[in-house]
Amino acid sequence: MLILSCPYCGVAADETELHPGGEGHLVRHGPGSSDDEFESYLFLRRNPRGVHVERWRHVHGCGKWFHAARDTMTMEVIGTYPAQVSEPPSEILNALGARSA
């Protein structure tokens, strides 16, 4: 069972209260991009055995989208942070760096 803390309402939300939104921080390639870029944006996803950054929505709660960094193998949650960023905040990156060191 996965429990993620929603960064907006602070609730430690059970997985069943959330809706998964797939990989986080995808770069959107729109009109004018190459076929390869568009393919990667549309179809190609990481599926790591280990640390993964994902989007989740607190669908039965406050309704907000947020990001979560977690380990897909151990189910350890490294942290959650708001959606309005294009890359993980420094404390998450530091935690990820500390793990890989």
């Binding site: 609730v11 430690a12 939300a13 059970d14 069943t16 209260e17 669908v59 039965h60 709660g61 406050c62």
Partner: peptide
């Protein structure tokens, strides 16, 4: 609901939007 309903986590004066079996509430 999966919400924590212990008195210290859910005192009077708090509202908890959550899941009730299969629907939101």
């Amino acid at each position: 609901t999966p919400a924590d309903l212990r008195p210290d986590a859910f005192p009077p004066g708090t509202i908890r939007r959550t899941r009730l079996a299969q629907v939101s509430g």
